[in-house]
Amino acid sequence: MSLVSPSPAAWPMPPLVRASLAWHGTAAVLALAVPGAAPWALGGVMLNHAALTAAGLWPRSRLLGPNVTRLPEAAAARGEIALTIDDGPDPAVTPSVLDLLERHGQRATFFCIAERVQAHAALAREIVARGHEVQNHSYAHRHNFALLGPRGMAAEIERAQQVLFDVTGRRPSCFRAPAGLRNPFLDPVLYRLGLHLVSWTRRGFDTRERDPARVLERLTRGLAGGDILLLHDGHAARSVSGAPVVLAVLPALLEQCRTRRLASVTLDAALPARHAGRVA
């Protein structure tokens, strides 16, 4: 089965990228045609590159293409949120996360590193079997992901798509960039594959914060329908007691969801297909 979705139209280039291409062309003409204009044209190009870099370093930015930071209004009106859990699966943490979710009757979306899914295939299948979702968080979670060119990004994402489909039998519909960082080459790849870029509404910084109370406060301050929450079962920080912070935070977080009448749903349940050509 092909994992590439037939796109109904050419990639819709974001205005910032379109303007950047136009400016590069204009700068080249100015540098060649106007005496003394080359330094100014080069400076303008450098400023443009700085703007593109800043957009890629802002995980919730939509300047480089669509970016899901909240669930649709209909889901928010139903009191739905999305609990997303990154960087696993981790056999020392993920099973306990699954138990806590089951105990509270909530669903989560696991943005998994495909390399780890290969190493822990049975655990990845258990995530799906227990009613949750496995989505694409790249193949190897490379620290230089945001510096890759179009071929490098496509290779990372497509390899992960294939691994996750082979292991779980389900084709991911969403992608989260490592650390949320990206560049202008990412969205054309995601569009071709029919993948939503998904970031978050609020995050707990639980890969570096060792105090569960502070993580919980970040996640629940103003928590409301439509929010997308970010936690980690992989690379999880440890509390002073040595326990993974996510396991200390989840019981209280899920209890607050219950008292606020919020239901955590999977992203596939809340989001439409990115384009009509996407296949299941």
Rank of each mutant, 00 (worst) to 15 (best):
A122N: 13
R125Y: 10
E126D: 15
E126Q: 15
E126L: 09
I127K: 02
I127H: 04
V128F: 01
A129Q: 10
A129C: 01
R130I: 06
R130F: 07
G131F: 11
H132Q: 12
H132T: 07
E133L: 13
V134C: 14
V134E: 04
V134K: 05
Q135D: 12
H137F: 02
H137R: 11
Y139F: 15
Y139N: 10
Y139Q: 14
Y139K: 02
A140T: 13
A140E: 08
H141I: 04
R142N: 12
R142V: 09
R142M: 11
H143C: 05
N144R: 12
N144I: 03
F145I: 06
A146S: 15
L147M: 15
G149C: 12
R151M: 08
R151W: 09
R151Q: 14
M153C: 02
M153R: 02
A155I: 00
E156N: 00
I157F: 03
E158Y: 04
E158I: 06
A160P: 05
Q161A: 07
Q162T: 13
V163S: 05
V163D: 09
V163G: 09
V163E: 04
V163W: 12
L164W: 08
L164F: 12
L164I: 15
D166H: 11
T168Y: 09
T168M: 11
T168I: 07
G169E: 08
R170Q: 15
S173K: 07
C174M: 06
C174K: 02
F175R: 05
R176T: 13
P178T: 01
P178W: 03
P178I: 10
P178E: 10
G180Y: 08
L181D: 02
R182M: 12
R182L: 14
N183E: 09
F185C: 04
F185A: 13
F185I: 00
L186T: 01
D187S: 10
P188Y: 01
P188N: 11
P188E: 07
V189Y: 01
V189H: 01
V189M: 06
V189K: 00
L190C: 06
L190T: 03
Y191A: 12
Y191M: 00
L193A: 01
L193P: 03
G194F: 06
G194C: 10
H196R: 07
H196Y: 10
S199Y: 08
S199L: 07
S199T: 11
S199A: 13
W200R: 05
W200G: 00
T201Q: 05
T201R: 02
R202N: 05
R202C: 12
R203D: 06
R203A: 15
R203I: 04
R203F: 07
G204Q: 10
G204T: 11
G204N: 09
D206A: 02
T207R: 14
E209T: 15
E209W: 02
E209L: 13
E209I: 14
R210M: 03
R210Y: 00
D211Q: 15
P212S: 13
P212E: 03
P212R: 06
A213F: 04
A213G: 13
A213Q: 15
R214S: 14
